[in-house]
Every structure is written in C-alpha cells, then in structure tokens.
Simulated assay, not measured.
Amino acid sequence: MTERTAKAARRARVLDDIDLRLLRALWMDGRARVRVLARDLALADSAVSVRLRRLREQGVLAGVHAEVDPAVLGLTTQALVMIRLSPNTDSRAYEERLRTMRSVLGAVALVGDFDLEVHLACRDMADLERSVTALRDAGAESTHTQLIARTVAGLGQALLTEEEPA
C-alpha cells in the first residue's frame, strides 16, 4: 500500500455519517452557509464549523470551487486530447506549460498508451486546431483528439455514499 493510499484509508475511517452528509451538501452547493448546513443536518452552527475545520485540516475537504460554463465565455467547442510525450520531453515541464494555455480546462496524468489526457475548451474548430498544434509543439510526440458532444452532469456524488463501491 502506498503512502497516499494509506492516508486515504485513514481519512475514510474518520468520516462518520454526519461528515458524509455534510460533504454531500457542500457537493450540491459549495456556497451553502454554515447556518443552512447546520439546519439541514440538525446540528448547531458551531458543530458544523468544527466539522468543516477538521475536514479541511485532515485534507478531506480540499476546497470548494466555482464551476464556470465555458460556453458562456464563447468556448463552445470542447475536446479531450490524449497525448503521448516525446521521449525528450520532461513531463513536469510539459504540465507547467499546460497551465499557461488558455484553452486547457484540465488534465490528468495517465499510465498506459498515453501520458496525459487534456480537456480543451475552444471558440471553434480553428481554435481547437491551433490548441492541439500548441500541445504538439510543447513536446507531444502524438495526439489523439475526441470532440465532446455533451457533459454528463452530477457525477461523483456516489463517492460520498455509505455503501461499498460495486
């Protein structure tokens, strides 16, 4: 078991039903006020505040983030680009380069046939082509691009259920 896996297992043991309900409520509305969370959980405001502080300190609650719809910004063409890095490309340097690219929404490092999967949001097909070219020029040996037809919303909440995963 890796150190990261061991830490995750320890975190899982410290979460009780109330913690899970609190995390689910934040997942649904990250801007929920402590008073509203307390009312919904039938707890005192101070009890919710203590739990939130503990969850942050333990690294369980890593943050609450705003989700911006790229289409509102005129970025209506989205794609996933699988990237195989050139042998002489440093993966950390490539990841730093991704942080400077306006069209990059996110990326995950992979183990397998490809090194990275990059999520792009672009204005149109010409912008997508320029973005993929920039990914290649930054040190990709090859790319495989798939257009996103639609995003499936509301996933991830099952992580916070009490049942064992299937």
Rank of each mutant, 00 (worst) to 15 (best):
R21W: 03
L22D: 03
L22T: 01
L23T: 04
R24E: 09
W27D: 12
D29A: 09
D29E: 08
A32W: 03
R33F: 12
R33D: 14
V34P: 08
V34K: 08
R35L: 13
R35H: 11
V36A: 12
V36H: 07
V36F: 09
L41V: 06
L43E: 08
D45R: 00
D45S: 02
D45P: 00
D45E: 13
S46M: 08
S46K: 03
A47S: 15
V48K: 02
V48S: 02
S49E: 13
V50R: 09
V50M: 09
L52I: 10
R53K: 15
R54N: 07
R54F: 03
L55V: 01
R56V: 15
E57Q: 07
E57V: 07
Q58K: 11
Q58R: 14
G63E: 07
G63F: 04
V64Y: 01
A66P: 11
D69V: 09
A71I: 07
A71Q: 10
A71D: 15
V72L: 15
T76C: 12
T77W: 05
T77Q: 13
T77R: 15
A79D: 02
A79W: 06
V81S: 05
L85Q: 00
S86Q: 12
S86L: 12
N88E: 13
T89H: 04
T89S: 02
S91P: 13
R92V: 09
R92T: 07
Y94K: 00
E95T: 04
E96I: 07
E96W: 03
E96H: 11
R97H: 07
R97M: 07
R97V: 04
R99P: 01
R99H: 11
M101E: 01
R102I: 10
S103V: 09
S103Y: 09
S103C: 13
S103D: 14
S103F: 09
S103K: 05
V104I: 04
G106V: 06
V108T: 14
V108L: 10
V108Q: 11
A109G: 10
L110A: 05
V111P: 01
V111Q: 11
V111I: 15
G112T: 06
G112C: 05
D115M: 00
D115Q: 02
L116G: 00
L116V: 03
L116H: 01
E117K: 04
E117D: 10
V118N: 02
H119P: 04
L120I: 03
A121D: 06
C122N: 01
R123Q: 11
D124M: 03
A126K: 13
A126C: 10
L128M: 00
E129I: 01
E129Q: 09
S131I: 04
S131V: 06
V132C: 05
D137L: 15
D137F: 12
D137G: 11
A138V: 06
G139F: 03
A140Q: 00
T143I: 03
H144L: 14
H144C: 11
T145K: 05
Q146V: 14
L147S: 06
A149I: 13
R150M: 04
V152P: 02
A153G: 08
L155V: 12
G156W: 05
G156P: 05
A158T: 15
A158C: 13
A158W: 13
A158Q: 14
L159H: 13
L160Y: 03
L160W: 02
T161D: 14
E162V: 12
E162D: 13
E162F: 05
